[in-house]
Each structure stands twice: as structure tokens, then as C-alpha cells.
């Protein structure tokens, strides 16, 4: 008998895929801004604002990214269906589960039975990645407020300027913004690989959980060994 287990709510899955697309756009446009690698066809009419266009998309998706990060924080704190994420914290503080989890990834142990949805390693990495989201958003907003001085840019200016000073000036903010992107670029392949690894090695349909919301568990097995 196989039973399905509800893991991720609809909004959470939606938010995840929005972020995937957003980060893809941001990385590509970001590399363009760092070193404009495409040169427009020369035109006698000054109407081709290629760099401005790339920058606009970067800014637009930057705000989608900020919104998605804020929404994720909201879900983590308030959403009832994210309870399974929150209780992962109790697994995180248990050394036994840490050891079991590391043994599992070293292919010499079984997956530990955990209360929450994330194992301790996941919990640490996701926390770091979320802090990186905030960091990326703030450095991005500092760069943005020097682009558009009215409206939101003007509103943020006096609030974020001291932070710009703390980071060592606008050029440093820019360098940090660029270097921090690489944390995401490291994270993404590892994240995808481990999701596939868990799907194949663990045979719980882990990959399916971010599409349909469900993972699949053998019922008899669960009763006997009390394993996820």
C-alpha cells in the first residue's frame, strides 16, 4: 500500500516556481549589467535603449524577487500549512538527527525519522539562503535608489544610505551584490541534485512534492519501521 503525504501547499509551490524563474532572469540580466556582452545594431535614430531595457527587466524582476522573499517569510511565520516547516527546528536542535542525516548522505545510513519536513542540513542551508535573499534585496534596493530618486527610491534613500556607508560605498555594494549572486549559483545545482538523489535513492517521489505537493510512502513500511 502506498499512501500520499501532503508536503507543500499550493501558494508555497507557486512562490517557489516564481522564484526559480525570477532568479533565472535576474542572473542573466545581472551578468549583462556587470559586463554588457550584447551590442545593439547601430542606428542613426537614438531610440535603441538596450542597456536601459536590460536594466529595466532586472529592476522589475528584482522587485518580484523582493516580493517573493517577503511572501515566503510571511508563509513561514503565519501560514498554518507551513507548520511542518516550522517544526523542522526541533529536528535541527537534535544532534542524533544530524548524525543520521549526514550518514544518509554519505550513503552509510538510513534516512532519519524527523518531525518536520526539512532535515537539519536543509534547515541550515535554507536559513542561510533566506538570509542571502534579504542581503541581496537590500543591496539591490541600495543600487536601485540611486537609479530612481523619486517615489520608492526617494523613500528608501535616507533609510538605506547608512547601510551603504556600512558596506563601504556604492562600488562595494555593487561588488557585494555581484559576489553574493554566486551563493545562489552554488546552491542551485546542489539543491537540484539532492532533490533528484532523494527521489531516486529514497523512492518517496520527493521530486513530485514541489509539483503536486505530495510525496509517496509505503504504508506497511511506515508502520514497521516508523520511517518517513
Amino acid at each position: 500500500m502506498i499512501e500520499k503525504k501532503y508536503e507543500f501547499s499550493g501558494v508555497l509551490r507557486f512562490n517557489h516556481w516564481v522564484r526559480v524563474f525570477t532568479m533565472l532572469v535576474l542572473v542573466i540580466t545581472g551578468f549583462y549589467i556587470a559586463d554588457p556582452f550584447i551590442i545593439p545594431f547601430y542606428s542613426s535614430e537614438p531610440v535603441d535603449f538596450m542597456n536601459a531595457l536590460w536594466r529595466s527587466w532586472h529592476v522589475i524582476f528584482g522587485f518580484v524577487f523582493v516580493a517573493s522573499a517577503i511572501f515566503k517569510l510571511y508563509l513561514f511565520i503565519f501560514d498554518r500549512e507551513s507548520e511542518n516547516e516550522r517544526i523542522s527546528f526541533f529536528d535541527f536542535i537534535k544532534p542524533r538527527i544530524w548524525v543520521q542525516q549526514i550518514k544518509y548522505y554519505m550513503l552509510i545510513g538510513k534516512h532519519p525519522h524527523s518531525k518536520g519536513i526539512y532535515n537539519p542540513l536543509q534547515f541550515v542551508i535554507y536559513t542561510i539562503i533566506f538570509i542571502t535573499f534579504i542581503f541581496m534585496s537590500l543591496t539591490g534596493l541600495i543600487l536601485y535608489m540611486h537609479l530612481y530618486h523619486e517615489g520608492l527610491g526617494g523613500l528608501l534613500f535616507d533609510i538605506l544610505r547608512p547601510m551603504e556607508v556600512f558596506f563601504g560605498g556604492l562600488a562595494s555594494v555593487r561588488a557585494i551584490h555581484h559576489a553574493t549572486m554566486w551563493i545562489f549559483l552554488m546552491f542551485i545545482p546542489i539543491h537540484i541534485y539532492l532533490a533528484i538523489f532523494n527521489s531516486i535513492y529514497g523512492k518517496h517521489g520527493t521530486m513530485d512534492s514541489i509539483f503536486s505537493g505530495y510525496s509517496w510512502h509505503q504504508k506497511y513500511f511506515k508502520r514497521r519501521k516508523n520511517k518517513k
Binding site: D35, G168, G169, A171, A175
Partner: peptide, 17 residues
């Protein structure tokens, strides 16, 4: 700018470099 010698260099490359 403060610390321009350290934060702005290399002077003939974009900040990404």
C-alpha cells in the same frame, strides 16, 4: 569616494572584475 583605491580598482575594468 572613501577608500577609492581599494574599492574602485582595477581602474580600467568594470566593478564585476
Amino acid at each position: 569616494e572613501p577608500n577609492f583605491w581599494d574599492t574602485m580598482g582595477p581602474f580600467e575594468e568594470p566593478v564585476a572584475d
